[in-house]
Amino acid sequence: MASGELTSSAYIKHHLQNLTYGKFPDGHWGFAENAIEAKEMGFMAFHVDTLGFSFVLGVLFLFLFAKAAKRASIDAPSGFQNFVESIIDFIDDNVRGSFKGQNPMVAPLALTTFIWIFLMNTMDLVPVDWLPVLAQKIGELFGADPHHVYLKVVPTTDPNMTFGMSIGIFLLILFYSVKEKGLGGFVGELTLHPFGKWMLPANLFLEGVNLLAKPVSLALRLFGNMYAGEMIFILCALLPFWIQWSLSLPWAIFHILIVTLQAFIFMTLVIVYMDMAHQKEH
């Protein structure tokens, strides 16, 4: 909840500012104290909160699943093992259903995408002030001005995160398109459809947009959904504390659906894009 002298707009802005570590215009590296400083850093900066939370969640996912993988045996599974195996089954079904090629990388890719995004989206359900206020207290302990300690908890509300993933996917699409179809085949696909070779520029334009739209739509869809959801939680938090639940609780319940759905959509589209990259006939 906003403290006394803070205006609503300042509260919202504070919540939407990443903890940025980067290179100041004068050349030294440090944490940005406000949004303007963060902007001046340009490309040479890191969002420490996004990187940190996504890393911790990714490692959590890998740790838990690796533990299950180590314990995996022919005997009857129990407890967490069951849970992991049902997820594996679910992903496997999806990959078998949508991906017709032969590539041992697609299923692990889908699994990682799904669970990682799901965990990051789930951070949205942590009450909006808990972790930022905790970070401010810790920052205060280290002598920083609490008003300048920023923390954005949900990595998927940072376009760097979503574009980072979708660019990875985009590189895989390019790589496997060239690998499976050959460079000529891939270029042919981009230039000779849908109108035949006499309309080459138009084909290239259409197919190019089509190709580029894949990573952009992946990233923006996830980012937009999560950013909007987070924004609504922040707005709910502006209400008096005794009535907040009347809006934030229904929204949180609804958001459980969005959290899962967005992770699922991202995963499904990754599988479909990988399938398109592997299809030879065209």
């Binding site: 340009g42 890191f46 969002h47 996504s54 990714g58 690796a66 760097n160 980072g164 993933m165």
Partner: peptide, 25 residues
Amino acid sequence: NINLTLVGETIMFAMFVWFCMKFIW
């Protein structure tokens, strides 16, 4: 702002997928 976080996340993503493909799946 779009910045080096993008590159960091891409690398992290690649590492996670590699690990998953090698040791989990």
